[in-house]
């Protein structure tokens, strides 16, 4: 009965939604507002060799990306507050020697790849967050195969409160630096190419490392 009701509700919602969606300007045609207004300006101003998505993320809409790293940070502290006190972790699994060997074998390569993704993000697909997910996934993989203790060993205990905030902190630093050099918070100084590059890389690294620590801690908070 309840299922029927819900299905009826979902259908009832879907019909006007589909009607409205179908009435949108035809997607893919180059003359609709989405291509002729702001986006066109971004593409016309694009530098010689750059990933425009990363440029939008870090430069034009840097505030959103700052918000985004604060969102995952907020999720982490919310989960940490929720954590039960004094709960026993699950016993560590006994890993198969083959799986263990393979995981140990690929771990350094994956880490290298993750840093590659983080550092080349402003010219190719990728960036801080994607690298963070790969690094975090690496820790998760080790945790699932060898037990949470092994995953915890990846994280430096003393520096943890600073590292987990690396993303927002990097943004704050870049924001202040930009404010000093360009006169606007979160601006990137086009007239100082070295500093510009350093700020981009710094922010990407901050997002990458901070994100990886956050993903790993989220997993650890749930596992133990």
């Amino acid at each position: 009965m309840k299922g029927r009701l819900a299905a009826a509700f979902a259908t009832g919602v879907s019909i006007p939604m589909i009607a409205a969606m179908a009435a949108l300007p035809r997607h893919g045609s180059p003359d609709q507002p989405i291509h002729t207004h702001v986006a066109r300006h971004y593409i016309e101003q694009a530098p010689e060799s750059a990933n425009l998505v990363t440029q939008v993320l870090l430069d034009y809409r840097g505030m959103d990306t700052f918000g985004e790293v604060v969102v995952i940070f907020a999720a982490l502290v919310a989960v940490l507050v929720l954590r039960a006190r004094g709960e026993r972790p699950l016993p560590a699994p006994s890993p198969s020697p083959i799986v263990g060997f393979i995981v140990r074998l690929v771990t350094p390569f994956f880490a290298l790849f993750a840093f590659h993704v983080i550092l080349t993000g402003h010219e190719a697909p990728g960036g801080g967050l994607q690298g963070a997910a790969i690094l975090g996934g690496l820790v998760l993989m080790n945790g699932i195969v060898f037990g949470p203790e092994r995953a915890r060993a990846f994280l430096p205990t003393r520096a943890l409160p600073w590292l987990q905030g690396a993303g927002p902190l990097a943004f704050l630093a870049a924001g202040i630096l930009g404010g000093i050099t360009t006169g606007f918070a979160l601006g990137y100084p086009a007239h100082l190419p070295v500093l510009h590059e350093a700020m981009l890389v710094g922010v990407e690294l901050g997002i990458g490392i901070g994100g990886a620590v956050i993903f790993s801690r989220l997993y650890l908070a749930m596992e133990a």
Binding site: S49, L52, V56, R61, E123
Partner: peptide, 15 residues
């Protein structure tokens, strides 16, 4: 939307 050698207009909107 990635500029560089080999990339051609039109680009997808990056926003």
């Amino acid at each position: 939307p990635i500029t560089g050698p080999g990339a051609e207009l039109p680009f997808m909107s990056p926003i």
